[in-house]
């Protein structure tokens, strides 16, 4: 039984870059040993935490996308709890949700091209077409008051 998981862990801000990459190697080691594969690693760098964790106000975030079994993730979860350097971590299974999202996108694409063909238009939207120029940055202004919350 295999799945796709996202693992995010927050490393203490006191850790050096070497320690952070060492942690990654350790995670990689566990993943390999248990027949998994790291699909992607993304270091978000140092970020401010929204609230203090322990005495920390900042942390280095690392995201790993892992292909593997549930037992593997259980093991990683157990191991990360032990590391003092990791102040917080989260494991989320993503494959099922991604399937649903993809299916919904595909369905919407099909529906729109069907409608367009019915109207005698080419199935894909042409550049410059559309009701009005939609801005690239479509931040919503409905809840303005919330946005200055950093």
């Amino acid at each position: 039984m295999s799945g796709k998981y996202e693992l995010v862990y927050i490393v203490s801000p006191d850790a050096t870059d070497d320690q952070v990459s060492d942690l990654h190697t350790q995670v990689d080691g566990i993943v390999r040993r248990m027949g998994g594969r790291i699909e992607k690693t993304d270091n978000w760098g140092r970020r401010r935490l929204a609230y203090d964790i322990g005495r920390h106000k900042e942390g280095t975030y690392v995201l790993e996308v892992i292909d593997g079994s549930g037992d593997l993730m259980k093991e990683i979860d157990r191991r990360l709890k032990v590391f003092d350097l990791v102040i917080r971590h989260l494991v989320v299974r993503v494959d099922e949700d991604q399937d649903v999202i993809e299916r919904r996108r595909a369905k919407r694409g099909q529906a729109s091209s069907r409608r367009r063909i019915a109207r005698g238009l080419p199935p894909e939207r042409q550049p410059g077409e559309g009701q009005r120029g939609e801005p690239d940055d479509d931040r919503d202004d409905r809840f303005d008051m919330a946005e200055d919350l950093r």
Binding site: D140, F143, M145, A146, L149
Partner: peptide
Amino acid sequence: LPFVPERA
């Protein structure tokens, strides 16, 4: 963020 106003 827009869905967690002020008091979060």
